[in-house]
């Protein structure tokens, strides 16, 4: 006990924590206010909104999984090279040479779980009518986050560069051929011509833009890697910030007026 007191009375401890143990209103407020992470929260919230049976904690878990994915993803990046010659073998090495290696598993199952939690989060927001005014805009931010979450999962699926990966991405991106006007097998594309030269071909349509080539290949691997590790996470991170800010500004977790 006195050791505890010695620690909490030390200058080091006090330089970090600007409050006593939060068991009284003042310190409870300070605990949230003086911590940059906790201060995403307000000091007080509606009792109805903190119940797990109300929010299912699904938004919070989605965010938590996003963080898990970031950390495990950075670790995986140390060992993975997005080049056709190396990609598969790098992943294989993770399996074959690391005792009890679970980083890839954490990352993969975490990603699947994030897709599930984001759907369930949307379901709960819908069922509690939390998209209604004043939260219309935040629902829309959420819809974009939903799309980004699926994109994150989808772009990551290619990276192991095995049969599972390449065919899932092939099947998924084949749809883009059929984009109206912009895919070479899409309705209306045949009319986009300059004289006799048709402008939308297998080598110039949206699918080509997505893949960087006519089939899923080396260019696609690099493209998806950059999207997966940099572009989409940055976008999602940014929108999550907006999302949380708006939860606060729209009056916190919804409750009856």
């Amino acid at each position: 006990m006195s050791l505890m007191k010695f620690i909490t009375d030390s200058q080091i401890w006090k330089s970090i924590f600007r409050h006593k143990y939060p068991d009284n209103p003042r310190d409870q407020a300070l605990a949230v206010l003086s911590n940059v992470f906790l201060h995403l929260h307000p000091i007080k919230v509606r009792k109805s909104g903190v119940r797990m049976s109300f929010t299912w904690c699904m938004g919070g878990l989605t965010f938590f999984l996003f963080l898990v994915e970031t950390i495990t993803g950075v670790l995986l990046m140390f060992y993975y090279r997005p080049v056709v010659e190396y990609a598969y073998n790098d992943i294989k090495a993770l399996r074959d040479h690391v005792p009890i290696g679970i980083m890839r598993e954490l990352h993969r199952w975490g990603a699947h779980l994030m897709v599930i939690t984001v759907w369930l989060h949307m379901l709960r927001v819908f069922l509690t009518g939390s998209y209604k005014p004043p939260r219309e805009f935040n629902w829309n931010v959420g819809v974009i986050l939903l799309v980004l979450t699926l994109l994150l999962s989808f772009t990551g699926y290619l990276l192991p560069w095995d049969q599972l990966a390449i065919w899932a991405i092939t099947v998924g991106t084949n749809m883009a051929r059929a984009t109206p006007l912009m895919g070479h097998e899409g309705p209306g594309a045949a009319f986009i011509q300059l004289g006799d030269v048709s402008l939308v071909t297998a080598g110039s349509d949206v699918r080509f833009g997505l893949l960087g080539s006519k089939t899923v290949g080396a260019a696609t691997l690099l493209r998806f890697y950059v999207l997966h590790c940099i572009a989409v996470p940055l976008g999602a991170g940014l929108l999550i910030a907006v999302h949380f800010w708006r939860v606060r500004k729209d009056g916190g977790i919804s409750g009856p007026m």
Binding site: P22, Q28, A31, K47, S48
Partner: peptide, 15 residues
């Protein structure tokens, strides 16, 4: 329950 407000610490943070 909506009119009752509780401190985030500990109610929400612990959950």
């Amino acid at each position: 329950e909506a009119s009752r407000r509780v401190y985030c610490w500990p109610d929400l943070i612990y959950t």
